[in-house]
Design a protein around this nucleic acid. Sequence first.
DNA 1: CGCGGTGTTGAGTGGAGTCAAACTGCGTGG
DNA 2: CCACGCAGTTTGACTCCACTCAACACCGCG
Lengths: 229, 229
Amino acid sequence: MPKRDQDAHMRNNPIYDMLTEGQRAMIAHALVVEKLPRRTRIYNEGERVEYLYLLVEGCVKVFRKGIGGNDYVQLAMPGHFFNIRPYFTDGRHPFSAETYSETELYKIPVEVIERILHQNVQVCRYCIAALAQEVSKQEERSIGLMQKQMRGRLAETLLYLAELYGYEEDGYTLRIQLSRNDLASISYMTPSNVSRTLSAFTSERILSLERKKIKIMNLSQLEHISDLG
Amino acid sequence: MPKRDQDAHMRNNPIYDMLTEGQRAMIAHALVVEKLPRRTRIYNEGERVEYLYLLVEGCVKVFRKGIGGNDYVQLAMPGHFFNIRPYFTDGRHPFSAETYSETELYKIPVEVIERILHQNVQVCRYCIAALAQEVSKQEERSIGLMQKQMRGRLAETLLYLAELYGYEEDGYTLRIQLSRNDLASISYMTPSNVSRTLSAFTSERILSLERKKIKIMNLSQLEHISDLG
DNA sequence: CGCGGTGTTGAGTGGAGTCAAACTGCGTGG
DNA sequence: CCACGCAGTTTGACTCCACTCAACACCGCG
């Protein structure tokens, strides 16, 4: 990959402006660019955190098996570092991560991050803000999940996917295509019930389905279902 | 309150060691000590964040009404700042807070915090670690809540209360005494089901109840129920 | 003594999980 | 090219967990 593109992506990153020339050079030198095919493991639950990962292009799923085989699944946000929290706690990954589609990532070794954090208060402040927002999102989601029932939870998930990955050119079809299983894990449902509920939504003219492609026909109605519970 | 005791509590706080003499003086000067009776509102949902609060003694409940009148309830941890996250996000309280029992707090104006964060990388690092741990706890709890059923959730809550506030002198009775209603909110249950499940636990010789006093008779069994789901 | 808030328990209902059967699309190999 | 098998999806029937509603008991308080 040409050097120019790397710089472009780094410049888009909000941290970039806070860095000194020396710090930028340090990152440019240590940065590893990786292009991965779909369904490739990036790291495993329990391993030490060696890099921070920035999702440039594609989709990464962060997950763990829970009680009774129920998976817990999160999706990484394009343009952001994902799953940075364990670096700041015990230094071990509590989840595994793998690519869902063809994906490009930047890897930065933690030692470099460490040195920069030590030097640069602004970057520290940025991390604080980022983590605070993560707490906030976690909390809101947790509250939402617990007090909504299936329809509301699935609606919330669909809106979340739209926010994260956006739509195809038609402006209605979700760009990301998940299996029913992953939709179920994210929404804390069973695959059966995801299927049932999606069917219900289509017969209510809220969605239209074509295999894994989901088209949102009536956005306001979907938001209504999500808000209502 | 005598100055000596204040110093003692501040010295126990992990941040204290990271501060310069000047910064310590700044805090000592701005610090407000407050003793509040039970059931006193500290701040309301939506208000601007003006202080960071350190819970010295007693119990503080942080809460919000959710969809359909279901409350969401958290408890503050003695010896720690509580609910600091909104200061780092939008600067408004997403929840209300009130004392549950007779309580003593320290209030530090946010401007003072701001100035110190700007000067002191170590304190920044401390905040990062604190927030990272908060994300972690939130996440684990969210996962646990969703995949456990009632018995497991209530067991988890009881263990959580034990961890937070400890036991009375007998070593078995939980020091904190919550209403069935608050137990329900924390565990995402209805008061009816809290009552039922507590009864079930006593008839299984896991707990013994006397009004609001809860005595844990068989800790390992309770942990087993919590872990199992 | 009566009242209100809180806790307990029961009966009935409905939402969500489980299990299983049919159907689909897809890749593989004969 | 077709046959086969597999994995994922859809749908139905059944079961069970948890919520609702209501009646009753309990304690504290005026």
